[in-house]
């Protein structure tokens, strides 16, 4: 497929408008905001160096998400074994109802790929195709991943109600 490359200004534009989204999604991978910031900076730095290899067969934003997700995963791996519950404090909030706490715990406990898919879909507002590009998987896999996540959420919310009087 023909390589078209990405323009530096386009990358900068997306960085400036979506920086916080990138950081918060990276935070869902690495657990803390400082490392997430580092991951975003490194992800964009990699993307700039490799911008010549960007192929215009998908949105540039999805390609950048992939760079950031990859950088975040690398940072997390360098930290060693990952405890998914490490993310829970990042999602914590004092003024939310109990049901929301359950959902946060549920998101924190998801396997990494599912958690990323959930963040990219419902926090970064990416469509399935862009998520697939960002995660390096097929669109069908994204669909299946999110369906599995919904199913897990449905169970986690409804099961306690079934046993209550």
């Amino acid at each position: 497929m023909r390589k078209t490359g990405a323009r530096l200004e386009e990358i900068e534009q997306l960085y400036r408008t979506r920086y916080q989204h990138f950081v918060q999604v990276a935070r869902a991978v690495v657990g803390d905001e400082a490392t997430a910031h580092d991951a975003v900076q490194d992800g964009f730095s990699q993307a700039i160096r490799k911008r010549g290899s960007y192929r215009a067969d998908g949105p540039l934003e999805a390609w950048l998400w992939r760079a950031v997700v990859n950088a975040a995963v690398s940072f997390r791996r360098r930290k060693g074994t990952f405890d998914p519950f490490e993310v829970a404090p990042a999602l914590a909030s004092d003024d939310r109802p109990a049901a929301d706490e359950e959902i946060r715990a549920w998101i924190a406990a998801l396997p990494e790929r599912q958690r990323l898919a959930v963040f990219l879909r419902y926090y970064a507002d990416l469509d399935y195709r862009a998520i697939a590009t960002a995660l390096g998987v097929e669109t069908g896999t994204v669909s299946a991943t999110l369906n599995a996540a919904h199913e897990a959420l449905r169970r986690s919310i409804t099961e306690p109600e079934e046993v209550s009087p």
Partner: peptide, 13 residues
């Protein structure tokens, strides 16, 4: 469910 997730994420991060 989707709406719930979106609202929780928007509210907590």
């Amino acid at each position: 469910y989707e709406e719930t997730i979106r609202s929780v994420l928007a509210g907590t991060v």
